[in-house]
């Protein structure tokens, strides 16, 4: 059966929910991990979840995994609602989802490279939207947005995402091969 990018059927409803719950749980579970010599930078290996769910299940699933997962994680942690950051996290999942239809084996060099490229674009755009919104909400100027919001957000997200995404893609390829799904 041909894959459709923007389909949102039963399968997508379920995987969007699983992606969001996973992102929330793994964010909370790895909250305590700190970057060496950068104690103030939030380190979130779970950021790979929206990217991975986007690459495998498409842009809507990726978006919901990031958007809703961030909301749930903040809900449990008691940080409140920050729509613009939730939206940014959604975009991190949405952009890699744009290549989901072209994914074939998930463990080939080509698939992994495309996954990495689109995930990088997703982080740059998603965190860009979230950071720039601070100009409107908080009245921050561009230098503050770049140095206090954008760079501390994209650097750990890119490091985590780019290392963990290929590992998850290779593991998923093994599951697809074994289960024939």
């Amino acid at each position: 059966m041909l894959k459709k990018s923007w389909k949102f059927g039963t399968r997508e409803v379920v995987y969007a929910a699983i992606g969001a719950a996973l992102y929330a749980v793994l964010s909370l579970a790895t909250n305590w991990i700190q970057l060496p010599s950068a104690g103030n930078v939030s380190f979130r290996p779970a950021i790979v979840i929206p990217m991975f769910f986007g690459v495998v299940f498409g842009p809507i699933v990726g978006f919901i995994a990031g958007f809703l997962g961030n909301i749930i994680s903040d809900l449990i942690a008691g940080y409140g609602f920050w729509f613009w950051w939730d939206l940014g996290n959604g975009v991190i999942g949405l952009v890699p989802g744009l290549i989901a239809v072209w994914m074939t084996t998930y463990n080939s060099f080509k698939d992994i490279v495309w996954g990495e490229v689109f995930s990088t674009i997703g982080v740059l755009v998603g965190m860009g939207i979230a950071s720039i919104s601070e100009m409107w909400v908080s009245g921050a100027d561009m230098s503050t947005v770049i140095f206090a919001n954008y760079l501390p957000a994209i650097i750990p997200d890119l490091i985590n995402g780019l290392i963990l995404l290929p590992i998850l893609m290779i593991a998923y390829a093994a599951i697809v091969k074994r289960s024939g799904r």
Partner: peptide, 10 residues
Amino acid sequence: YSMELAFRYV
């Protein structure tokens, strides 16, 4: 519904 399901999965 996806939202509802996500809350239940946590």
